[in-house]
Design a protein around this nucleic acid. Sequence first.
DNA 1: GTCTATACACCGATAGAC
DNA 2: GTCTATCGGTGTATAGAC
Lengths: 190, 190
Amino acid sequence: MGAPLISKDEVLNRLTRVFRENGYGATLSQLSQNTGLQRASLYHYFPGGKEEMATAVVERSNAVLEREIIAPLHGTGSPSERLRAMMRSVDRYFAGGTESCLLGSLTHTPGTHRFESHIKAGFTAWIDAIASVLTEAGLTRRTARVRAQNAVFAIEGALLVCHGIGDTKPFRRMLRELPEQMTAVELSAA
Amino acid sequence: MGAPLISKDEVLNRLTRVFRENGYGATLSQLSQNTGLQRASLYHYFPGGKEEMATAVVERSNAVLEREIIAPLHGTGSPSERLRAMMRSVDRYFAGGTESCLLGSLTHTPGTHRFESHIKAGFTAWIDAIASVLTEAGLTRRTARVRAQNAVFAIEGALLVCHGIGDTKPFRRMLRELPEQMTAVELSAA
DNA sequence: GTCTATACACCGATAGAC
DNA sequence: GTCTATCGGTGTATAGAC
């Protein structure tokens, strides 16, 4: 013993999986089993215990959100192409609706006041990036902001409800339909 | 001692509050504190322990959903009036976005496989009732179903995200805007 | 860097007095 | 119908050997 069994990055990957499924209610036993490390070894990597593990996970997760989901919004192509690219990333990130959102899981779990700022930062960055693209697409600032919020609500709600009813199809349908709805021209008093 | 301090219905009210906030992660200490009853007294009402408490709470909660939120959809008035009535009920039920959804909280909490059927039943009944009204409003069955799903996704997602970012205003905005969006005429290839 | 062993609090649940 | 007292199990966290 003494030689590291897996890299710290791989440890974080596995911790993330557990926190995504269980929120802050994840237990050290689960985290230990899923990493293959004993509890005491986890404390070697994270002396601050579960709180430090969750903090590391949510910070890295927000970085992934930035890189995998937000960055495509600032890429090349038309606004609606970039929105479709984001939806593909979202579909991949949530494994077609089978995997949960870490921020959502943490929001629901008790004892997560310590992560409030991370949760808020993640959701806000996502909404802001979408709003920026929609502004670029010609929508007013206010409409862009409203539709960006609605899009994130739709994704998070679909994820939750589809998990609850045990059917991921409506989640994927939603992802397909969203870009067109978001960029549609406004109807004044239909 | 011996005389009941509060009615069983009031016990259920208080248990519901705790389960809504904490999901199945609610502890007997919390349930005891919020009811004013000692743990052992809770076992008098619910010999099956926490599982029986949660079952009673979710079953009653689904009955409330049926009575307070679904029933207005089958009332009098035009379809869009009934949708607006439902949104008012939803706003009241979630206290303007400050209170959580029991079904949502249970969905996210570990150890809730026992409530899967209740969760699915609640969400499904809600979606079906909305779809029925939208069909009545002249939408095709398929469009009605899709928009009903989207409406519940939007409500649940807004509830979650608004809780995460600590601002309930987008939730209430969403409730105001939803009825018009749901009943709008379809645009073919905008 | 990994492990075994352990400390101590809280968990859900039960026994039994009044 | 309420309570105090207590059980066994598991929770997070730590000590210390190798």
